Amino acid sequence: MRTSKPNLLLCFDAFGTLFSPKGGVAQQYAQVAKQCGVTGFSDKELQSRLLEAIKEEREKNPNYGRATGLGATQWWTNVIHKTFTPLMRNNQALPPTLVPKLLHRFSSSEGYQAQRDLVPAIRALRERISQQGVERLVIGVITNSDDRVPDVLSSFGLNVSPLRYGIPFEASALQGKQYDIDFHCMSYDVGVEKPDRRIFNAADIMLSHIIKARYHETISESDLEGWQKVYVGDEVAKDVVGAAEAGWNPVLLDVEGKSTEIASLEDIPQQTLKDLFENHTSDGNERQK
Rank of each mutant, 00 (worst) to 15 (best):
G40M: 04
S42C: 11
D189G: 00
A213H: 08
D275H: 11
L207D: 00
A202V: 06
T3V: 00
M88E: 10
Q131S: 12
K194A: 04
G242V: 03
R198C: 02
A243P: 12
H209G: 02
E52I: 04
E170D: 15
E286T: 05
E170N: 15
G24R: 12
L118P: 13
P86M: 11
E235I: 02
S187K: 07
M206T: 02
E245T: 13
K101Y: 01
F156Y: 00
K194W: 04
P96E: 15
R198W: 09
T73F: 06
G111Y: 03
I181E: 08
P120M: 01
E256G: 04
L137E: 05
K229I: 09
R198T: 09
C185W: 04
S109L: 00
M1A: 13
V255C: 07
G69L: 08
K34Q: 13
T85A: 12
L9Y: 04
S259R: 01
Q113M: 05
R164S: 07
I262L: 15
R126I: 05
A53I: 09
W75A: 08
N91C: 03
S264K: 08
D204F: 05
L252V: 01
Q28K: 14
T77R: 14
V79N: 04
H280Q: 10
S4E: 13
C185V: 13
G111E: 10
P62Y: 03
I205T: 10
C185I: 01
T73D: 14
G24K: 14
R136T: 13
H184D: 06
H216I: 05
M88P: 02
G176M: 06
E266L: 11
A14G: 04
R128G: 08
A93T: 01
Q35H: 10
G69K: 09
R2N: 11
L265N: 07
L252E: 01
S172W: 03
L253D: 03
G65V: 03
N78A: 12
N61L: 01
R164P: 06
R214G: 01
P168H: 11
K229D: 11
L265Q: 13
I211V: 13
G37T: 10
N61H: 15
I167H: 11
L103M: 11
